[in-house]
Design a protein around this nucleic acid. Structure first.
Length: 226
DNA sequence: TGCCAGGCCGGGT
DNA sequence: ACCCGGCATGGC
């Protein structure tokens, strides 16, 4: 079973090819995207980021200077726009206070310490935090999302009752080599397979590269939980 | 048309 | 310690 995650990775990579994540030209843009994409389709997020780019606001001090109402309006297409405007301001205020708005200084902080401190920001939960660390900072920490949990349960790697963020994260981090490139690609591949074959309702398996690895019992159990 | 999307928080048990 | 409602737009 310890080889299962590696086999899944190989199959996914062979089927989908490299995903080339995360879309974003700078670490700051990636960090902003991490907040905007919370429970939201990326195509909507891209519209919001484009609007910020047009206004020249994709750098910390410039974005922090934008009033709440205007920021909310600019990111409207990303949905939850008032919530996300507040969360972005929380994050930027923290970045300014702790690191003078300097992302390089932020990522120079030891990873465990940085993760803990990022999680204190209201609006930055575990997945958003890890996405920032991995995709903006190149720090080898595994990102878990709803797709990851579904895949893990449907393959019988964890029981539904133990599928918490930290449990799933630990499974990957303790099984795989701690490597930024692998963690980056693996999360992206899980999203790819999830979008096509592991959505909540359609449950289409035809052509799924992981179909042969499915645990039938887990398939039933996952209907109850995830 | 309803369902879904790369979550997270706050308040109530 | 869980459980649940709220948050909101756009695509299929």
């Amino acid at each position: 079973m310890s080889t299962t995650l590696r086999e899944m990775y190989d199959r996914l990579l062979a089927h989908f090819g490299p995903q080339d994540w995360w879309p974003g030209e700078t670490p700051f843009e990636v960090m902003v995207g991490a907040v905007l994409t919370q429970n939201t389709n990326w195509t909507n997020v891209a519209k919001a980021i484009d609007a910020l780019r047009r206004e020249g606001l994709l750098e910390p001090k410039a974005l922090l200077a934008v009033p709440f109402d205007r920021l909310a309006d600019l990111i409207r297409p990303a949905g939850y726009f008032r919530v996300k405007a507040r969360r972005l301001i929380n994050l930027l205020t923290w970045l300014e206070a702790e690191f003078d708005g300097d992302l390089d200084a932020m990522f120079a902080t030891p990873a465990d310490d940085l993760r803990e401190r990022l999680l204190t920001v209201n609006g930055v939960g575990a997945e958003t935090c890890d996405s920032i660390l991995l995709y903006a900072g190149g720090i080898p920490t595994f990102v878990v999302d709803a797709y990851t949990c579904r895949v893990v349960v449907r393959h019988g790697l964890l029981l539904p009752e133990e599928v918490t963020y930290d449990e799933v994260k630990a499974l990957f981090e303790e099984t795989l080599e701690r490597d930024t490139a692998i963690f980056n690609e693996y999360h992206a591949l899980l999203v790819a397979v999830g979008k096509h074959y592991c959505r909540p309702r359609p449950r289409c398996l035809t052509g799924c590269p992981l179909e042969a690895m499915l645990d039938p019992d887990a398939e039933v159990r996952s209907e109850v939980s995830a």
